[in-house]
Simulated assay, not measured.
Amino acid sequence: MAVKLCFVTVGATASFEGLIRAVLQDSFVAELERHGFTRLLIQHGKGGQELFDAYRAEYENGQKRHGLEVGGFDLCPDMTPYVSMVRKDEANFQELGMMISHAGTGSILDALRASVPLVIVPNPDLADNHQQELAEELAGQGYAIVGKLDDLPSVVAKATNYGERAPYFRRENEKPFAVMSDELSWTED
């Protein structure tokens, strides 16, 4: 049986419990299943551990629900192997999945480098709106889809349709770098 993964990451610096709650909602999990996903893997961070543990306890210690295998972990120094699991790999029976991410630049770049469908969900609890601006700019250029916590099931079909057309970030392609540079005041030496 082929594996189709939805990988969710909240990053390492700020808690984003709202995103954890949103991806564990029955409506979101059911929408994943409707679009052929077989796994949901959540990097929940320290702030999301309690939510994830409660979910696991309520639903038979991580056993399949809605036909999906659900797993999670705290933090990892290198997300590349997890992002790679989203990519299509016929030799390992992997279908193209999707990545849902907080609006952290490291996570965004990981997804763009891997050329996987990316949904960026800005954290509305942060002090300013730089995450929203970054997400909207990247979406406007066709690099990502902007997701909202109160309507996350709607992005599953969009990401599935994005499919093989997911843009790939190369250093020669300055658009994503310029957007992140402008938003974060990066400078090149």
Score class of each variant (00 low, 15 high):
H35G: 05
E31L: 06
C76R: 00
E69I: 09
I120E: 02
E136P: 01
P176Q: 11
E183D: 02
G104P: 08
I108P: 01
I100A: 00
P122K: 03
G36R: 09
E164W: 02
K46H: 13
M1V: 12
G71E: 14
D182V: 04
T80D: 09
A91R: 10
R113E: 03
V179H: 05
Y59F: 15
E60D: 15
E133D: 12
L19G: 01
R171A: 11
A157M: 09
G36L: 09
L109Q: 10
T13F: 09
P124L: 09
P81M: 06
A30Y: 01
A30T: 13
F37M: 10
A135F: 04
S185H: 13
S15H: 04
S27T: 14
V155M: 01
E31K: 14
K64L: 05
E188T: 14
S181R: 13
E188H: 09
T9W: 01
S154K: 10
G106L: 13
I20C: 14
F177R: 14
E90F: 02
F93V: 07
N173A: 11
Y59D: 04
D128A: 13
Q132M: 15
N161C: 09
Q25G: 05
A114Y: 03
R39M: 07
Y168C: 12
A144V: 06
V10Y: 01
L118V: 09
C76F: 00
E90Y: 04
S181W: 03
A166F: 04
P167D: 10
D151G: 12
A30Q: 14
T13D: 07
R34N: 10
E90A: 15
G72Q: 02
F7G: 00
V155Y: 00
T105V: 15
R34A: 15
G18W: 04
A166T: 10
T13G: 06
D89P: 08
S154I: 07
Y55Q: 07
E164H: 14
A135W: 02
A166D: 05
F37L: 10
P167M: 11
V86E: 06
R65A: 09
V29C: 14
G104T: 06
P167L: 08
K64C: 07
D125N: 14
I108K: 01
A114P: 08
L75S: 09
C6H: 04
V10H: 02
P124I: 10
E164Y: 07
H66N: 13
S181M: 13
A139I: 02
H66L: 05
A57V: 13
G62C: 06
I120A: 07
Y59V: 12
V155Q: 00
N173D: 15
R39F: 07
A135N: 04
K175Q: 10
L24C: 06
V8H: 05
G62P: 04
I145Q: 07
L40S: 01
I100H: 00
A114S: 14
T38M: 08
R56T: 11
H130V: 05
I145H: 06
L41Y: 01
G163D: 11
A135G: 08
F16H: 04
G47I: 11
V146N: 00
G104R: 04
A157L: 12
F93Y: 11
Y82D: 00
P77M: 04
T187N: 13
A2V: 06
L32D: 03
T187S: 15
